[in-house]
Amino acid sequence: MCGIYASNFTIRGVNGRPKIDAAGKNAMGKAIWVVVGNNVLIANVEMYGAKVPDRNGAALRLEGAGFTLLNSFLHDNENGILSGANAASDVLIEGTEFGRNGYGTGQTHNLYIGTVRSLMFRRNFSHDANVGHNLKSRALTNYILYNRFSSLRPGETGSTAAGQPSYEIDLPNAGTSYVIGNVIQQPAANQNGAMLAYGEEGASNAGHDLYVVNNTFLNDDTARGVFVMVGAGVTKPVLLQNNIFSGIGTLSSQVSTVAKTNYRSVAPGFVNRATYDLRPTPSPLVVNAGSDPGVSASGYVLKPVAQYKHVAFWVGRPVTGVLDIGAYEANSIAP
């Protein structure tokens, strides 16, 4: 347990992934590692067991500006990552698994990113948050690209025990946000029926642009569901384009939402739903049925260029002709 005060500093596990078991201990009453320095990179570590007296202990507590986490596994902590507010900070998280983090109060999460300048969250696997969210970010700009958000059935055990998350993705203060190419699953046992929440704590961030493009949403709750919940303070129409929405539920809570070339079905055709092979089976309603999403208001290209591959990896998206709807092309390799 320690504070990391150096800037422009790299910590990398070698010869396998080292396991760091806090066993209930902490640094500064905050975390296993408290990252105070700027531009710190951490790669290839497994961290678990963080606990502090106020029940808010994290594997990683971010206090500096600029942080990168690569190819790691954070699980069974009171928080996975807990970041403070820092408008000069850009956070990159890539190729990392988060599971079963959270004390169980709903106030602790797999990841909590404070009001930073930007979050780039790509090709990660976040699952089974313990009552909290699988990802919560107050960043001014969010890039949530080619990830898998999904959890186990009650009683199942995978890399962690099963949990009951609230939101799969929570962007409580809005912000310009790109949600592209993800698998977003609401498990049957959950703490909140909404899957992607945007601006529900007040749209205080300057950007109110949400682009939800080529994702595969899976709602396993047969009693309730909201695929995209938008707070009342967000008046700019959300864009939902080329998404598969599987299961029951309200598409969007925002009346003005722009919905283009999406596919809704209680049970869409997938190659193997049970094993998360979510490539679409041949159907003219999905295959070659998407539309070109173009660019965002700021010029960001919205067309997906990759797709998630388990665990916490990605491959290029082999588009030939027209885009397929959803997170996977039908002619791609198995995920």
Rank of each mutant, 00 (worst) to 15 (best):
L119N: 02
H109C: 09
L135R: 02
P154G: 10
L152T: 00
L140W: 00
F121P: 06
R117A: 15
F149W: 05
V116G: 06
G158T: 01
S151C: 04
S151A: 14
G155H: 02
I144Y: 13
N134D: 15
D128L: 10
E156L: 08
N130G: 00
Q107L: 15
G132R: 04
T115A: 15
F98T: 12
L152N: 07
M120A: 10
A162P: 01
S150W: 01
L152Q: 10
R123T: 07
R122K: 14
R100C: 01
S151Q: 04
S151T: 03
N147C: 07
G163M: 06
A161G: 15
E156Q: 15
L119T: 10
R153I: 00
T141A: 05
F125I: 01
D128K: 06
L145R: 11
F125E: 08
R138M: 03
G114W: 09
G106F: 12
E156I: 07
G106A: 09
A161H: 10
S126D: 05
S151F: 03
R148Q: 08
G114T: 09
I113Q: 12
S159M: 03
S126L: 14
S126A: 15
E156F: 09
F98K: 08
F121H: 11
R122C: 06
S151E: 02
T108D: 07
S118F: 01
G132P: 07
R117I: 02
R100F: 12
G102Q: 04
R117G: 07
G132S: 11
I113K: 12
G163D: 06
L119K: 09
G158P: 14
G106Q: 13
G163L: 10
V116L: 03
S150K: 02
N142Q: 08
F98A: 05
Q107K: 14
N110D: 13
G102D: 10
Y103P: 00
A162E: 11
A129Y: 02
M120N: 14
G104N: 11
K136N: 07
G114V: 05
V131G: 01
T157Q: 14
D128H: 09
H109A: 06
S159L: 13
F125G: 00
V131N: 14
N130M: 06
G158L: 13
R123D: 10
G104H: 11
G102T: 04
G132W: 08
